[in-house]
Amino acid sequence: MGGKVSCTLGEVTNRADFIIFWGGNPAECHPRHFTKYSLTPKGRFVPDGRKGRTAVLVDIRETPSAKAADIFLQLRPSKDFEVLTTLRALIKDQRVDPAAVAETGLTLEQLQDLVDRMKKARFGAMFFGMGLSMTRGKHMNSGALLNLAAEMNAFTKFVCMPMRGHGNVTGADVVLRYTTGYPFGVNLSRGYPRYNPGEFSTVDLLVRGDNDAAFILGADPGATMPQPAIEHLASIPTIVLDPKVTHTSRLSRVHITTAVTGVSAPGTAYRMDEIPLPLAPALRSPYPTDEEVVRRIRRAVARRPAWQPVDENVRSAIA
């Protein structure tokens, strides 16, 4: 049924002799990934550094990251799932249809060669970016790569992890999991956590017009979300915490300026491999931190009549 096989980045540095980057452009989006973690550093078991590693880049276009790779595999847009599924079959010596494979932009020979190399690796690592996880197929595409990595462990050591993007989004995952059990999209409206991606995910909620107020911190959805979602945000009371007055601030009813994470606000942030790191601010902000403001709002809410969820013994409801 699949798996998630991961490690800390130091394991990649020290051990990985075969690395695949899929649908990401670290050279431009995670500039130090190659030099600090994955490709060039000398590792305990990879004493030659870059020379000791084979790097493969899989993407739909030749980004600057391709120059850093030994092998660049260019596939047609939205064919990631087909290619990954084919690889899952090939590692198990299953037959695939060469003509159908060719429609992905890669040949069966290229994929077979990749599989042979993967199996010969001592320690393989795969990283994927939004080029995989945000294109047609979405979480199933990342699922395909995660499964491929897990299944590779029947032959040799393999790990896989997402190249998480902005700031501390990994921390949000971690915190939500231990406080609510679920990683994102958690609905607490019945007094306990409920989870159903697609139902309680922000864009879906907003596009359906389910929310009647919004509190935004550490993000600027007004600049990034689909237009119908933005329009709904503008139509309801929206509250924004941000160091700057953002697109979202402009459509909100309340904006509060806060200190900048890691620059003037202390605390903890998680790296993409879920390693927590302390923040050491170099500046003292004239603004309060997000943490302080959220706590103050929470206390202000607590001064109002308490919302006390009741145990649901009745079926059928509007959520």
Partner: peptide, 27 residues
């Protein structure tokens, strides 16, 4: 549309029109 039957273990999918078939399905 795409990827009909992806990762299926057992079962039957009947389609009444020609569709794209994943490379991992054998005619």
């Amino acid at each position: 549309e795409l990827r009909t039957g992806a990762w299926m273990l057992r079962g039957t999918i009947v389609v009444l029109q020609s569709i794209p078939i994943l490379p991992t399905f054998a005619y």
